[in-house]
Simulated scan of single mutants.
Amino acid sequence: MGKKYKIFFSAGCSVFMLVFLILPGFSQESWLNSLKEADRYRLFSEKGFSFEYRLTDKGETSTMMVYLKNTDRSVVLCVYTAPPELVGRKIFMDGNSFWLLDKRMQDPIRISARQMLFGQASAGDITRILFSDSYKVLEGKKDGPVIILELAAQPGKEISYPRVRLELNDADSRPVKAELYAATGTLMRTIYYEKYKTINNKILLTQFRVVNELNKEESIIELDKFEEKTLENRYFSREGMKALK
């Protein structure tokens, strides 16, 4: 992939490794429930929905609209709306399949999870709205006011970061921090969940900061314009993304 196909898209999503501490009243089921509660801060609607994703990186900003399919929230189509040179570029994700369609291309090209790592924020993980869709809880620990979960990719899931260490506020399971690890164990990125807002009577994540641990560069991601409407199902396919204008 050349530079022009770098994808400034990120997620959400994280994996961690630490020692499991068994405390009275806590079980594997309770850790899983905490993870599902954490997911609700990204879940605007039980069905498909849409929102604007705005990334500021090195003083430059790019935006895209993110659409989740009504019948399957794990199927996602993203359309760039700025800057001008990226307008019209699309990213489609269906399970382990990722497709990129640039406005100068006749047909979309298949992108691997590894290629999705280009840019400060990875499209492969940002399009995965819910942790529990892609990860399982291996271990958990309560450390004062914080719950720490060690996550691992579910079998068969092609994910950019196979390990995540996720920190949640114990009082309400609100995500605080996530560390994303490569398969080698190297810490690649740290996500700091910084702002939440009440929208339609739901508390939603609206801003997070991504730190590239390899070069310490930072990106700010803002989520806005949440709507319950999304695209028609016919656009959520390799061929359908070509028809969307």
Rank of each mutant, 00 (worst) to 15 (best):
Q154G: 02
P155S: 02
P155M: 05
P155K: 02
G156E: 06
G156N: 00
K157H: 11
K157L: 10
E158H: 05
I159G: 04
I159F: 10
S160L: 09
S160F: 08
R163V: 13
R163T: 13
R163F: 13
R165S: 14
R165L: 15
L166Y: 05
L166M: 06
L168I: 01
N169G: 06
N169P: 07
D170T: 13
D172K: 03
D172T: 00
D172E: 01
S173P: 03
P175V: 10
P175H: 05
V176M: 10
K177V: 09
K177F: 03
A178H: 02
E179K: 13
L180Q: 14
L180G: 06
Y181T: 11
Y181C: 10
A182M: 13
A183D: 12
A183Q: 12
A183V: 10
T184E: 11
G185Y: 15
T186V: 05
T186H: 03
L187G: 00
R189V: 12
T190R: 09
Y193P: 02
E194K: 11
K197P: 02
K197Q: 14
I199L: 12
N201P: 08
N201K: 02
N201A: 05
N201L: 01
K202G: 13
K202F: 08
I203D: 09
L205W: 01
T206K: 03
Q207T: 13
F208N: 08
F208S: 09
R209W: 00
R209M: 08
V210Y: 11
N212P: 14
N212E: 07
N212W: 06
N212A: 04
E213F: 06
E213D: 12
L214C: 12
